[in-house]
Design a protein around this nucleic acid. Structure first.
Lengths: 240, 240
DNA sequence: TCAAAAGTGTTCCGACTACACCCATGC
DNA sequence: GCATGGGTGTAGTCGGAACACTTTTGA
């Protein structure tokens, strides 16, 4: 949640009431697909990084700023994928607990206990460039593998699921790999990323051909890994 | 906009502030793809059918109810496709005008002049089953062909555009034709609908084979049209 | 019997797969 | 040289497109 100071939570009058956003921030460390999850101090509550929309800022700006503050990354791939508006998607008890544990006055932040509709975005970032920055509210933020997620509060697990579905549908269409990998990468690294995202394995040769057939890759110099084998080429995505 | 009585607009305390929905309701009359557009009385303002979300109802229920009230159709295909949250997407002057022309007190409905974030849905309905029902605010509601739309207020043209894009992407994937056509239809009718939606023409034989290859069609008796040619089969979609 | 439109058989081409083989590299 | 893993040639398979042909209908 956005806050200005440690002892002072977001002010009702600065924000659009009932509207929140949540972000599923994907990173790939070369082996596993991970997302950023934050833990509210002393509550055992895990949640997706989220925030609210200021009255004088666009939805997209609000989310961009929110994700930027957690990752330090300026130009990130950000895509809206769904808006969650069920009746059961707020938990005032949990929110009260979070406020309490951060020494915030519940009366002054009562608007946070009300119902929220949340617009969800996913972001793809280069794992290596990031040093996750915890919230001013002093909660921690950590990378979690998708198959080792802690139990998330409210409907956040459903949000992650839907983010993953959308990411899979868009993977080919939108050249998404480019945002998860370093600018230059080997075919094997690309295949790894694809396999982890899709949750299936591909044949090496078929994958290579499929990727090259898209005409979206540029081949660069060879990479001498020190391995006892032929050196692989490095590739990068063509900027279209 | 949802209202309870003619002389009494929506009450602030019943609804979630800053949150609206808009619906792009597609229908196919056998020749053209059309959408429902309403005109606010004496204002020359055209808009998509929309509404607000009650505090104690889910987003989806709110939209379902809203579309149902305009079309009378209970089981409709409804899909959320995007949430619009730009800063420039409200026009208090226009809203004032609408309130005024409907004899509503502006002070009492001031909350409607504020900024709204709108969750947009599209619906697919069988043209024949519908008798569009105008708003209690006494605006008219009409079918318009997509290529003959009047200028729409605010960002509603952008919303229509995005709805159409999403519909095109989902057309094959989700068997959408079934919601726009009568339960039984000829291959030619199906092809017509596809062509109008996609904005391109298909070869007759290729289209027929492609459709039959999906295994989603059931063939029924022949239809004797009275035309001087072989009678076409009727088809319906398999319910999966 | 003829024109119009629906349905189908056949051929062709291109994309993708599998599998094999060849190449480069460090030990 | 040899094990390891990357790159590519080739043959087979599948699906879709094109086109022509056949079938059915009313005039």
């Amino acid at each position: 949640m956005n806050t200005d100071k440690h002892s002072q939570g977001p002010k009702k009058e600065d924000y659009l009431s009932h509207i929140a956003f949540d972000s599923v921030i994907f990173g790939f460390n070369g082996k596993q697909l991970k997302i950023l999850v934050l833990e509210y101090q002393n509550t055992g509550l895990f949640a997706l990084p989220g925030g609210f929309v200021k009255r004088n800022e666009s939805l997209k700006d609000a989310v961009t700023k929110g994700v930027m503050e957690r990752t330090g990354i300026e130009d990130l791939y950000l895509e809206q994928f769904h808006t969650f508006g069920n009746l059961d998607r707020f938990d005032s008890k949990a929110m009260e607990r979070i406020l309490e544990m951060n020494g915030l006055d519940i009366k002054a932040h009562e608007w946070l206990l009300d119902r929220f509709i949340s617009i969800a975005y996913y972001a793809l970032i280069n794992f290596e460039e990031v040093n996750p920055i915890p919230d001013p509210l002093a909660d921690s933020i950590e990378w979690y593998s998708l198959d080792e997620l802690p139990p998330l509060m409210m409907d956040h697990e459903e949000i992650v699921q839907k983010a993953l579905e959308t990411l899979r549908e868009n993977l080919d269409k939108k050249l998404l790999g480019m945002n998860l990998l370093p600018t230059k990468f080997t075919m094997k690294e690309l295949q790894n990323a694809y396999e982890k995202i899709m949750g299936e394995t591909f044949k090496r040769t078929a994958f290579q051909r499929r990727m090259l057939a898209t005409k979206n890759l540029v081949r660069h110099e060879k990479l001498f890994t020190g391995g006892a084998h032929r050196a692989p080429y490095l590739y990068s995505f063509k900027i279209k």
